[in-house]
Simulated assay, not measured.
Amino acid sequence: MVESPPDPEFDEKVNDICEIYLSAIERAERGERTISIDEMTGIQALERKAPDQPMRPGQLQRREFEYIRHGTQTLIASFDVAQGQIATARVGDTRTEADYLNHLQQLLATDPKASKWHLVMDCLNTHQSESLVRWVAQTEGLDIDLGVKGESGMLQSMPSRAEFLRNPNHKIVFHFTPKHCSWLNQIEMWFGILVRKLLKRANFISKAQLKTRLLEFIDYFNRTMAKPFKWTYQGKALKQ
């Protein structure tokens, strides 16, 4: 197996994200928002062909192993690090560049008075797209030449676009995790809760029902279970 080259900015990115997490509540008091974002793709709407057999004395619950596939849905979700809640969620058939941009636009619309947005996400290509750079530049009121995608300027490549999006002087600041470091993204912990509490044993007769149940669970979580994750990792590089 060929391993990907190590991220040359690994320590810098890890320390940056840990600092953002550890100061999220303090930043929230100043009107800043710290949001962890990612997509959960391929969520299957599976319907069991027969109902479960309930537990009996000396016998565990038994589940039907055959199922009917009704398609999949994609969840794009934003987790508020300081509040411990899902700030916004989008459920649909795709996770395109346009879907992601629309999700971020809806997120910022929930709090127009926020003084700054810190957005933590992985380095997927749709998270470093041309449309995001143009949107941020417009939102920041920057009247500058962004260049041409694939040819010049800030739009030239993913590294150049990422550098622009990470600018700490912007109101919207992107914080990218290093490659293969999903453990740094707090929304991944929430996805684990979603799987255990809803998806692992659920039965869905359609994509529409899956979408409804996902959104209902998010509402239930925010009302009854939400609290900030206790982040203890300080971001110090491990040395022998």
Rank of each mutant, 00 (worst) to 15 (best):
Q61V: 06
R134N: 06
L142Y: 13
I68M: 00
D111H: 09
K171E: 07
R166F: 00
E32Q: 14
D99G: 02
T126V: 15
Q128R: 15
R48C: 05
K211C: 02
I193C: 01
A87T: 13
N167E: 09
A226K: 00
D99C: 03
R30Y: 04
G31M: 12
G141N: 09
K197G: 00
I76E: 01
F217R: 06
F221T: 04
I20Y: 03
A82P: 08
A28T: 06
I144D: 13
Q234D: 14
V133R: 12
V2K: 13
A87M: 14
V2W: 09
T177L: 03
E19Y: 08
I25N: 10
V120N: 09
V173T: 12
G84P: 06
L165P: 09
R213L: 07
A237P: 02
S4D: 10
N222V: 03
D11N: 10
E12P: 00
M158H: 09
N15E: 09
A109E: 12
T88L: 01
F79Y: 15
W190N: 01
F65K: 14
G58F: 05
D38I: 01
S206K: 04
M154G: 09
V91F: 08
L155S: 13
L199K: 13
D145E: 15
E47Y: 06
R33K: 15
K149S: 15
Q128G: 12
I20E: 14
A226F: 01
W117R: 05
L60A: 12
M154F: 15
I25S: 15
T126P: 01
I68D: 08
Q61H: 04
I68R: 11
P168F: 07
I76F: 01
E64L: 00
Q138Y: 04
S157E: 13
R201I: 02
A24F: 04
L104I: 03
G92C: 07
M1Y: 08
A50Q: 14
E163Q: 13
F217T: 06
F191E: 08
K171F: 01
D99T: 02
E12W: 02
M40A: 15
D122N: 11
F10C: 10
G235F: 10
D219L: 03
K239S: 12
Y220C: 01
R161P: 10
H127S: 08
K227R: 10
K113A: 14
H70T: 07
L132Q: 08
R161N: 12
M189C: 04
L101I: 04
P57S: 08
P57Q: 12
M154W: 15
L142C: 07
L132I: 11
L108F: 11
S23L: 07
E140Q: 15
R33W: 09
Y100A: 02
L104R: 02
Q209D: 08
L155W: 11
S23D: 14
E3I: 05
Q234G: 03
T224P: 01
S182T: 07
E9A: 10
T224R: 12
I37D: 11
G31W: 11
I43H: 10
T94A: 06
M225P: 01
L155D: 14
K13M: 05
P8N: 07
V2F: 06
F204S: 11
S206Y: 03
A89V: 08
F204V: 07
P5L: 09
I172S: 03
S131Q: 13
P54K: 08
S36I: 05
E12G: 00
Q234S: 13
M225S: 11
W117A: 05
P178C: 02
Q83H: 11
Y67V: 00
V136K: 15
Q106D: 14
